[in-house]
């Protein structure tokens, strides 16, 4: 892997851009427990970046640091060429970072299409007075964004459930609605926390296809946590390996697979 900030093209012809986000020496503690120790890695524009590691390795904590839910005690986060100050989660959403959750965090009282519409909240600009009249510009705005949401719903093939309350949907579909909601934010950086957890093979294949399509069609940079190694190896351009909050390795799937420390700690010695 070239150690350069410039963009380049991988062997299989994918365009990987310059660094969009860089984590420098991140350390995160909860009281006496250290969740992440001195972790540094970067995410490049247009790539699919995987964060892997055994349970309790600090993967979810890392995503929570990236989108501002946790604030690390040490280290710096650089986003799009600027050092990021400590921000509230909604300010980070405004910067164009969206995510999905390990334990689905949909708005259970709303339907699928309403959930997807919540992703457009930041793009709806008309003020309170327009909102309460709901005519002219406010309605136009609502219609424009509604159309966009319907496109995303089509794209993820969930038209059939667009008016169903999300609480009653099966698990796999809920995961898909959550992805739709994140996509509706048109993020610069999309964080996926175990997008395929608890899915059967077929659902995993569908989800993998969607992730690749999103990356391909919209050029969205994706950072994902995943347990299924075969999925990670297929999807990811580069992989970070964490273990007990420490960085074990960072590189292409091939490089990581060959790394002895990774084999010992995570993949295990072959039986």
């Amino acid at each position: 892997m070239k150690d350069t900030k410039e963009s380049f093209v991988t062997e299989d012809g994918r365009h990987i851009g310059s660094v969009i986000m860089e984590m420098r020496n991140i350390t995160l503690r909860f009281g006496g427990v250290v969740a992440i120790t001195n972790a540094s890695f970067d995410i490049r524009e247009g790539e699919i970046r995987a964060i892997i590691g055994p349970n309790g390795a600090g993967k979810s904590s890392m995503l929570n640091v990236i989108n501002g839910f946790y604030h690390p005690q040490e280290g710096e986060i650089w986003f799009r060429g600027k050092k990021r100050p400590s921000l509230r989660p909604y300010e980070i959403a405004e910067q164009g970072i969206a995510r999905t959750f390990q334990n689905i965090a949909l708005f259970k009282g709303m339907t699928t299409v309403e959930n997807v519409m919540t992703g457009r909240q930041l793009m709806l600009k008309k003020n309170f007075l327009w909102q309460l009249l709901r005519i002219g510009p406010a309605l136009d705005e609502e219609v424009v964004h509604r159309r966009r949401c319907e496109e995303i719903i089509d794209f993820l093939e969930i038209q059939a459930i667009r008016n169903s309350p999300v609480g009653s949907l099966p698990y796999g579909l809920q995961k898909r609605v959550e992805l739709a909601r994140a996509l509706a934010m048109e993020p610069k950086l999309l964080l996926l926390d175990e997008p395929m957890a608890g899915m059967n093979v077929e659902e995993k294949e569908d989800m993998s296809r969607f992730i690749l399509d999103v990356n391909d069609q919209y050029g969205t940079t994706i950072a994902l946590i995943e347990h299924d190694m075969s999925v990670v190896m297929d999807l990811a351009d580069r992989v970070v390996v964490l273990d007990y909050g420490k960085m074990l390795a960072d590189g292409t799937p091939d490089e990581v697979q060959k790394n002895q420390a990774v084999i010992d700690a995570y993949l295990g010695v072959e039986h």
């Binding site: 989660p89 909604y90 959750f101 949909l106 708005f107 009282g109 930041l122």
Partner: peptide, 17 residues
């Protein structure tokens, strides 16, 4: 919608903006 987002899951609402 912002009200209902707070009602259904306030943490997720904040992470969406």
């Amino acid at each position: 919608r912002s009200w209902m987002m707070i009602r259904d899951m306030d943490i997720a609402a904040e992470l969406i903006g």
